[in-house]
């Protein structure tokens, strides 16, 4: 019981948990998304290796969520002094940071996978019509909008907390 209180009553624990989830979940999403697109791209490259550059760009698109997660995790870490001088934070502040990390964590996870699928479909587009590369890039970018909105919300919330 005391142990539990020591952990869950500790603001820093919650803040670190939030940072972990942001980097981890968004990262998992990006890994899956980039993987999905990579599989499709590898298939195309076996026939037309000269399209490597184009497919690589498409594959990079679902990779951004992982970075957004990393950014939020990093800002939280800076805030509570995991990097730099440690700051004492209250339980309330810890829970606040935990909550603020949730949007990019979960939306990053889901949107990166969806974006990976859209990118993989884009690989199919440039297999037949390489000149339509720009359009193949726009569809995944539509998905990314929601990850960007989550990043923005998470950022504004984390940044809004004055310690």
């Amino acid at each position: 019981m005391e142990m539990l209180e020591l952990i869950f009553g500790n603001g820093t624990f919650w803040a670190v948990l939030g940072a972990s989830m942001a980097a981890m979940l968004a990262g998992i999403g990006s890994a899956i998304g980039v993987g999905i697109c990579g599989e499709a791209a590898a298939g195309l490259i076996s026939e037309e290796p000269e399209k490597f550059g184009q497919t690589l760009v498409l594959q990079a698109l679902p990779g951004t969520q992982g970075i957004y997660g990393l950014l939020i995790a990093f800002i939280i870490m800076l805030k509570i002094g995991v990097i730099g001088t440690p700051v004492d934070i209250t339980l309330y502040q810890g829970l606040y940071l935990f909550a603020a990390a949730q949007p990019i964590a979960w939306c990053g996870l889901g949107s990166a996978i969806a974006q990976g699928k859209a990118s993989a479909a884009g690989v199919g587009t440039i297999a037949k019509r390489p000149e339509e590369f720009a359009k193949a890039m726009i569809y995944p970018a539509m998905v990314e909008t929601y990850a960007i909105l989550s990043l923005l919300v998470s950022f504004l919330m984390v940044n809004g907390l004055k310690l």
Binding site: T64, I67, Y68, L70, L71, F74, I75, T145, I148, L149, L151, L152, F155
Partner: peptide, 14 residues
């Protein structure tokens, strides 16, 4: 258009 801010932040924070 809020993406302008978000992407700007993203490159700066990275």
């Amino acid at each position: 258009y809020s993406r302008i801010l978000a992407l700007g932040l993203s490159s700066a924070v990275m």
